[in-house]
Amino acid sequence: MSLEPAPRLDIAARAAALAAQHGSPRAAALALLREIQQAEHFVSDARLAEAATHLGLPPDALDSLASFYSHLFRRPVGRRLILLCDGASCWLAGASAVAAALEARLGLPAGETAPDQSVTWLQSACIGGCDRAPAALVGRNRRLVGPLAPDQLDPLFEGPA
């Protein structure tokens, strides 16, 4: 099974539109990378190079952004993305036990993607849901889920991926 999804974004058109909107190709670079990821789940080497070409920037300029931002994925991720908070308020509410239960349920340590590409889960910085701790973000639209418990993980697997 190929990991690379079919390209779904017209990079040439979006590069031109975003460069005009942001005033320069460089200022538009992050927005374009975000759009590629939103459409295709991650930013492949090939698509990053295409984006650079259409913005008229060296690929390094885009790689220096893609390698910096933690929410830009340069490798394929699973169809469902789970970002489980490991911030202090979530830790105080029992986030370590939730992480252990999730790891056991998926048979997958944090940072990994399931072999069938169904899910990727990561530990995350505070996600601004400390009033719903332990909390997580789910799916491409980063839906906030919580409070979770070791025996109440189902909300992580419900709703749009």
Partner: peptide, 21 residues
């Protein structure tokens, strides 16, 4: 933005808006 706490520091934020690291 796309993650990373340091983006909130005001000079880093300005760099981010310019498309720099």
């Amino acid at each position: 933005s796309a993650g990373r706490y340091i983006v909130g520091e005001e000079t880093a934020l300005i760099a981010a808006l310019e498309g720099a690291r």
